[in-house]
Design a protein around this nucleic acid. Structure first.
Length: 270
DNA sequence: AGTTTAACCTGGGTGC
DNA sequence: TGCACCCAGGTTAAAC
């Protein structure tokens, strides 16, 4: 499921309900996520006040006065705001009960997500080596060009590397490369500074547009109200193998780049 | 050191 | 219907 736009959509959905609220209870129904949910997480969170719900890359940071919960949605995770008494759904593994009767339920069928705790999240091993936010000023074509010197890896894998830039998953990597006219399998070190400038711009545009539309729902992504995102109807190439290129009408091709499906136009992308 | 591969899981779709 | 198989939005860690 979630790439950066979906995580940001989720964050925006739950933050207004959480911020300033005290946690009445943290209920863990199934601690077997990507890593085990720490047994002392309820004790660390219950009774404390949520100062902010932030995002770093695809991580949601629930900041309390006493430390920070680090939450990842993995490939199939979502969070719902539940207002009244309602039985938990299958795969509702964690829930945050607030002092205003609202409940935030974390649902994750594949259990690739996580709930961890850190007193210093910026220094946490999962966060301390992350690259820049794609929508921040320090993310530029010049940065991509510099980091790509000498790299033999396919440019698609390069921009999906969270040490280079965070938040670009398979869907948006395909979309941004199409917009920039760059072949996904071109070696990262063999692309000009000018073309990296276009690519950085395409990444920013694609992610911004997707956030405005509430993310992309392919199968199961829902926002905190349980509604899907609508960016799927704006996709240019992802999932469209064999369909005409939006620019030149030639059929789009599909290959695999490091285990991931890659769709591109062999004419428009070089 | 850079790059590729396997692994963590469930569920939906497809083909026999 | 059933079953085997393949695929999926992420990321780490081990293996080349």
């Amino acid at each position: 499921m979630p790439e950066l736009p979906e995580v940001e959509t989720t964050r925006q959905g739950i933050a207004p309900h959480c911020e300033g609220r005290r946690i009445r209870r943290l209920l863990i129904r199934n601690p077997a996520l990507r890593w085990p949910v720490p047994a002392d997480l309820p004790a660390r969170m219950e009774g404390h006040t949520i100062h902010a719900v932030d995002r770093r890359g695809k991580y949601i940071l629930i900041r309390l006065d006493a430390g920070t919960a680090i939450v990842h949605l993995g490939m199939s995770g979502s969070m719902r705001v539940v207002t009244g008494p309602a039985p938990p759904l299958k795969h509702d593994h964690v829930e945050l009960q607030l002092d205003n009767e609202l409940i935030i339920r974390f649902n994750d069928p594949r259990r690739f997500g996580c709930w961890l705790w850190s007193d210093t999240p910026d220094q946490h091993p999962l966060l301390n080596a992350l690259g820049p936010e794609p929508l921040a000023a320090e993310f530029t074509g010049a940065l991509l060009y510099r980091l790509a010197r000498g790299r033999q890896v396919a440019v698609k894998s390069f921009i999906m590397d969270s040490r280079v830039v965070v938040g670009v998953g398979n869907i948006y990597a395909n979309e941004a490369l199409f917009k920039a006219g760059i072949h996904p399998n071109r070696k990262a070190g063999r692309i000009s500074a000018d073309r990296y400038h276009r690519l950085a711009e395409a990444i920013r545009e694609t992610l911004s547009a997707a956030i405005l539309m509430g993310g992309t729902t392919l199968r199961d992504f829902v926002n905190s109200d349980g509604k899907p995102g609508y960016f799927a109807q704006s996709l240019l190439v992802y999932g469209k193998r064999g369909q005409p290129c939006p620019a030149c009408q030639r059929p789009l091709r599909e290959v695999r780049t490091g285990q991931r499906s890659t769709v591109y136009c062999g004419h428009c992308q070089r």
